[in-house]
Amino acid sequence: MSNQRLWDISPPVHEGAPVFPGDTPYRQRWAATIAPGCPVNVSEISLSPHVGAHADAPLHYDPAGAPIGEVALAPFLGRCRVIHAIERGPLIEWAHIAHALDDLPPRVLVRTYRRAPVERWDGALAAYAPATIERLAALGVTLVGIDTASIDPADSKTLDSHQVIRRLGLRVLENLVLDEVPEGDYELIALPLKLVSADASPVRAVLRELNPESP
């Protein structure tokens, strides 16, 4: 049995969990409860696929883009690097992450918060500068992640960083919780659900300590 440490980097999802203003919040009701004649509890939930840690589909920012159920899983599974750029917003510039780019794996997650605001919406969230994503892609990065609700500023109407992702065919994870994760390399596991027509999917994002025997 493996003794590799795991970090759960997903925020809690519950009624009252923060969502982008105007987005559908998480709601749950009980369709059935254990009682005489009913042996199970069964719940019914409604939510935006952008609640909690989630993977955006190309359909989210491109009317002709693929839904999340058609997106390949490989980018969401494998070696990644966590880089700290804490309180360096509003945009994560190249200079903020340049200290941690040697021998870069194909997945990069950036921590911007000292303590992620998992119980409230943060309209002043930090985002990626589009040029930072461009340069990461040039180094072979295929997935970028962040511990805020968006890779673009909350008030952006042009979604410049999402458009870089679209143009270069990258994948994105948002709303991660990296508070307890030191800078360094890990194995990322953050698979989206096979929602065949959705613009995003919740993920249970975890990081696993790398096996010292792995290449």
Rank of each mutant, 00 (worst) to 15 (best):
M1E: 14
S2Y: 00
S2G: 13
S2I: 08
W7I: 09
I9C: 04
P12C: 11
P12I: 13
H14R: 15
H14N: 08
E15V: 14
A17Y: 07
P18S: 09
V19P: 09
F20P: 06
P25M: 07
Y26R: 05
Y26M: 02
Q28N: 05
Q28A: 14
A31F: 00
A32L: 11
A32C: 04
T33R: 15
I34M: 12
P36W: 05
C38W: 03
V40C: 04
N41F: 07
S43R: 13
I45H: 09
S48M: 01
H50R: 15
A53F: 01
H54E: 02
H54D: 03
A55W: 02
A55Q: 06
A55G: 01
L59E: 03
Y61A: 12
G65R: 04
G65H: 05
A66Q: 15
P67V: 12
P67W: 09
I68W: 07
E70T: 14
V71R: 06
L73R: 14
P75L: 07
P75M: 09
L77T: 05
L77R: 11
G78Y: 09
R81M: 02
I83R: 00
I83C: 07
H84A: 15
A85W: 10
E87Y: 04
R88G: 05
R88M: 14
P90H: 07
W94V: 06
I97S: 06
I97N: 07
A98M: 06
A98K: 13
H99D: 13
A100G: 06
D102E: 15
L104G: 03
V108R: 08
R111C: 07
T112Q: 13
Y113H: 15
Y113K: 13
Y113V: 12
R114N: 11
R114A: 15
R120D: 08
D122W: 08
A126L: 03
A127K: 02
Y128C: 10
P130T: 10
A131S: 15
E134Q: 14
L143P: 09
V144R: 00
V144G: 06
G145E: 08
G145I: 04
I146C: 09
T148V: 07
S150Y: 03
I151L: 11
P153Q: 02
K157N: 06
K157C: 02
K157R: 15
T158R: 13
T158E: 12
H162A: 10
H162D: 09
V164R: 01
L173H: 01
L173S: 10
E174N: 13
D179A: 06
E180M: 08
V181T: 09
V181A: 10
P182Q: 12
E183G: 10
G184I: 05
L188M: 00
L188V: 05
L193E: 11
K194N: 09
V196G: 00
D199Q: 03
D199G: 00
P202T: 03
P202N: 02
R204T: 01
A205N: 01
V206P: 01
V206G: 04
V206W: 06
L207E: 02
E209N: 03
N211T: 00
P215K: 12
